[in-house]
Design a protein around this nucleic acid. Structure first.
Lengths: 164, 164
DNA sequence: GCGATTATATCGTGTCACGACACAAATATC
DNA sequence: GATATTTGTGTCGTGACACGATATAATCGC
C-alpha cells in the first residue's frame, strides 16, 4: 500500500480505523467498569491499582515510590501524592527502608488486602466477559489486510470455527 | 474453591492477582503510549479518541454529542466540553442537525482527518508489538486454574507451540 | 395545546497530574 | 576523609478536566 508523501502520513484503511475505534471503546468500557466497581467499595480506581501493584511486587524488588511510579506510568511526585491519598484512605502505609534511608516502602494494610481481594474477584468476572471480546478485537487489528499491512508481528493462531 | 464467608470476599489466588496486575500494567503502557503519541502531534489523547469515534460512526447513526458521550463513557455535559476543546483545537466542527434542531452534529475537519490518520498508523504499529502481549496476558487470565475457577467463559483456542 | 421527554449548553467546584524546587541519603571520585 | 554527583522522596502552585446542578430549546405523545 503506497505511503502518502505529504507529511509522511500513512493512510489507514477505514476498516482498520473502525477496528481501532472498537478496541479502544472496549478499553474504555473495561476502565469504566473498574472505576465503578472501585467507587462502589469507596475507593478510587487509582487506589485499587496501587493496591494491585504493591501486593504483587516481585521478589527482590522493593515496594518503593519509584517502583510504583514506574508501574503506574506516572512521574515520581505524582506517585508520592497518590500514595498520600491511599494512606489517608487507610489502604496502605509507608514504612522506612532500613537498608536505604532515602526510601519509603509501601505496604498494603489488612483493609487494603480485603478490598483488593473483592475487587480482583469482580474484575476477573468482568474480564471473563470482556476479555474474549478484547482478544477478538485485538486479533482483527493484528491481522494483515484492510490496513496498511505494515503491522509488526507476531502472528496469531487462526480461530477454530465457532470459537473465539 | 470455597468462598470466604466474611464480607462475602472471594479469595483470589496470588497467581491470578499477578496476572491481573500484569494485564492492567499493559493497559497503562498502551494508554501512556497513546497519550505521548497524541501530545507529540499537539493534541490530547481524548481529542484523538474524539476523532476516532466521530470518524467511525456507523451508517444510520448521527454523530451527535450523545453518541459521543455514550462511546466515550462520559456524562453528556463532559462530552459537550470535550467537543468545545476539540473545536478550539481545529479538529472538529459543530453542525446543526436539520432533522432535529435540538441536536448538534460533530464533523471531523481536514486537519482532524490528517492527524487521525497519522496517529492511527502509529497506534497500529504499537499494537503490533503490544497487542500479542495483551492477548497472552488475557489468555492467562481467562484460563481456569490459579484463580477462583469461576470465571465466565468463553473458551480460547490453545496456542500452537512457538506461537503467541 | 399542553405536559413529558430529549438534546445540548453553561458554570462553579473538586480532583489530580505535573513542573519546579528542595532536602536527605547513598555512591563515586580524588 | 572530604567533596561532588547521583538517587529517592516530598511539597506546592498551577492548569486541565469530569461532574452536578441548572437552564433553554426542540420533539413527541396524548
Amino acid at each position: 500500500m503506497p505511503v502518502a508523501k505529504k507529511n509522511k502520513t500513512a493512510r489507514v484503511a477505514p476498516a482498520k480505523l473502525r477496528e481501532l475505534a472498537e478496541f479502544r471503546y472496549q478499553l474504555r468500557r473495561f476502565l469504566s467498569f473498574s472505576e465503578m466497581a472501585s467507587e462502589a467499595v469507596g475507593i478510587s480506581a487509582q487506589q485499587y491499582q496501587v493496591l494491585q501493584v504493591i501486593a504483587t511486587v516481585p521478589e527482590g524488588r522493593p515496594a518503593s515510590i519509584s517502583y510504583l511510579a514506574e508501574r503506574m506510568m506516572v512521574r515520581h511526585n505524582s506517585a508520592v501524592e497518590l500514595v498520600d491519598r491511599t494512606v489517608r484512605a487507610g489502604l496502605v502505609r509507608r514504612v522506612a527502608d532500613e537498608s536505604d534511608h532515602r526510601r519509603s516502602l509501601v505496604e498494603v494494610t489488612a483493609r487494603g488486602h480485603e478490598l483488593l481481594a473483592r475487587l480482583a474477584g469482580q474484575h476477573l468476572i468482568e474480564l471473563g466477559i470482556a476479555g474474549p471480546e478484547m482478544v477478538r478485537a485485538l486479533r482483527r487489528l493484528l491481522e494483515p489486510g484492510g490496513g496498511n499491512g505494515k503491522v509488526a508481528s507476531g502472528r496469531l493462531p487462526a480461530l477454530a470455527e465457532g470459537k473465539i
